[in-house]
């Protein structure tokens, strides 16, 4: 075949693929915005659902998602950062231990999210919660049932591998000669990590964790059995309360509602809110990275 013809074919194929992706993104955005924007108003954001969830707002779902995201981040980020520091700085690449951790992290990253949900049910509720109850209240049911704490921790497990991988990558971008410069001045390894490596990789750490957290914020499967409810008349005011979440709300509205047609505007508007939430988290990540890069120059 003529070389030019080959070039044209390859260019066309790549072009078509790009167009398909753009088409998908634009369609999702257009459909969501057209369907959701007219229903998006202050009352929708600030009110509880009414009349069998066919009217009213999604306030508790927004608050529930926010609280869950915060607890998840508090649990996953320090744990993930510390693991990443170990893998990047302390672990001997060839040691069985480091290889095992890496294998575990990779495996964790490909486990389907519904499995995390089942694990959370079995481990946090069935094991940790049950033992807590028999220790604290002599078997009275309090922790051995779904709640926002167990849901958040389950979600933290799901996002942990993403945090570990992105933070480790960020740490590894610090060049070897920076570490050597610090060590040659008589700094200990920990001083080098704290004063040179972590400050230098902070933008990577932040963006990595924000991206991981924004992924977790939209997940549904892990919280199905571990804490999310389809309706709650009050906001969670303790870690042992159940909660409403945006992703789960969309699922309930579109599959479990007695009148799916009547709730369609709510579905669209909820989807739009969830998209705006994850997009703005991503935007924060991008802006942070940009500002920190600029400051470093």
């Amino acid at each position: 075949m003529n070389r030019n013809v080959k070039d044209i074919i390859v260019e066309s194929i790549t072009g078509v693929c790009v167009l398909v992706i753009i088409f998908i993104i634009v369609s999702i955005l257009t459909i969501t915005i057209i369907g959701g924007w007219p229903n998006l108003n202050w009352a929708f954001l600030s009110e509880f659902p009414r009349e069998g969830m066919t009217k009213g707002g999604i306030f508790p779902a927004i608050v529930g998602t926010a609280i869950m995201t915060i607890i998840m981040a508090v649990a996953a980020v320090p744990f993930g950062v510390i693991t990443a520091i170990y893998l990047a700085e302390y672990a001997n690449e060839k040691s069985v231990f480091a290889k095992t951790i890496r294998f575990a992290v990779k495996t964790l990253a490909v486990v389907p999210s519904i499995i995390f949900g089942l694990f959370g049910l079995g481990f946090f509720i069935g094991f940790v919660g049950k033992n807590l109850d028999s220790l604290l209240s002599g078997g009275e049911l309090r922790w051995a049932q779904p709640n926002i704490l167990w849901a958040s921790l389950t979600m933290a497990l799901l996002t942990l591998p993403v945090v570990i991988v992105s933070v480790e990558e960020a740490i590894r971008t610090i060049p070897r000669d920076m570490r050597e410069a610090s060590l040659a001045l008589g700094a200990t390894k920990w001083q080098t990590i704290r004063k040179v490596v972590l400050p230098g990789s902070v933008s990577g750490i932040l963006t990595g964790t924000i991206l991981a957290v924004s992924r977790g914020a939209g997940e549904v499967a892990p919280i199905l059995f571990t804490g999310a409810v389809y309706f709650s008349s009050h906001l969670p005011h303790s870690l042992s309360d159940q909660f409403m979440s945006l992703g789960y709300h969309i699922y309930i509205m579109s599959t479990q509602s007695s009148n799916v047609d009547a709730t369609q505007p709510i579905q669209f508007a909820t989807t739009l809110v969830l998209l705006l939430l994850t997009f703005s988290l991503n935007a924060v990540a991008v802006i942070l990275r940009y500002r920190i890069r600029k400051r470093a120059k």
Binding site: P175, D177, M178, E180, A181, S182, A184, L185, G186, A187
Partner: peptide, 17 residues
């Protein structure tokens, strides 16, 4: 650590933080 305080090092590629 004490040894390296006593014996400073300048590298081929300048490496300020």
């Amino acid at each position: 650590v004490n040894l390296r305080k006593k014996v400073g090092m300048i590298f081929q590629k300048s490496n300020p933080f």
